[in-house]
Design a protein around this nucleic acid. Sequence first.
DNA 1: TAGTTAAAGTCAAACAAAGTCAAAGAAAGG
DNA 2: CCTTTCTTTGACTTTGTTTGACTTTAACTA
Lengths: 157, 157
Amino acid sequence: MPSIADLIAAYIRKLLEQNPEGVEIRRNELASKFNCAPSQITYVLTTRFGANAGFMVESRRGGGGYVRITRLRVGRRQTLLNQLLEFIGDAIGSRDAEAVIMRLWEEGFITKREALVMKSAVEDTTLRIEAPWRQRLRAEILKAMVTTVFRVMTERG
Amino acid sequence: MPSIADLIAAYIRKLLEQNPEGVEIRRNELASKFNCAPSQITYVLTTRFGANAGFMVESRRGGGGYVRITRLRVGRRQTLLNQLLEFIGDAIGSRDAEAVIMRLWEEGFITKREALVMKSAVEDTTLRIEAPWRQRLRAEILKAMVTTVFRVMTERG
DNA sequence: TAGTTAAAGTCAAACAAAGTCAAAGAAAGG
DNA sequence: CCTTTCTTTGACTTTGTTTGACTTTAACTA
């Protein structure tokens, strides 16, 4: 006998099939539809639709609140992250750094503004420090930012 | 189901699109159009069209009163930018740097993700370099990013 | 000018979500 | 059985919205 959690998960998956872009539910509504505590929905969301399952969950409280669930193109994501980190390596020049950032932007992982902010952080004019160290430092900073982008993308909230 | 507040906000945004210079409404009229308490309009104005969202709201009471909503031009932002740049100075510790970023976030100038990316760029663990230089470098990077945030915002208008 | 009326503002209370967490219960594994 | 892991629940918290009673300000009118 499947648990309620499984039924709810199946239901949400069905919704997602019908609308692959992402679905919006109301926690309490769903809970009463399945005759369970609202926190059960939260449980299903965290156990079955969390980061590692390849989904993103956003929500809002208060009147007109909602929970939005969207699928992430997960495969490409992880590989891109690894590709980029490898490409950056221990040291990287400003031109290559820019290429990394542009790539992220083209692939739709960051906004233009984020791209500009990131770029400004690793420009030669910002990193005023002796040449051999500059490349290393740039690599550190860039890797930190890129990793954050990908990490945050999979978090909730 | 979007809240009334969202509907009202959408309506005002539509008005602003049609007339980018600024828009004048009558609070009570709008309220009865949306079947809500007049103070609801005030609520929408303060939560969705405040200074941090880049708008200015002027109003007048009494007979022939009105509420005018206009996009904010650079002025006030500029002062915050200058304040922050001054605070950062030539060198800054990680705690203060974080405070700067938090301030930007609280004031609504950057998203949470942008905040996290910026923070990751200036963390101690990222800036692996001798102590006295680290503070300087952090200041440079932070100033570059903050300036970019404001510059890009201004471009968007 | 005083009084009236027509606005808009303020603020706190009530309401409406969703989140958190720990404890109790059920299944599964050894 | 006994332990561990997964599920379910409910009390409490946090966040966001809606309302209404009361205040302030401006314009008009006698």
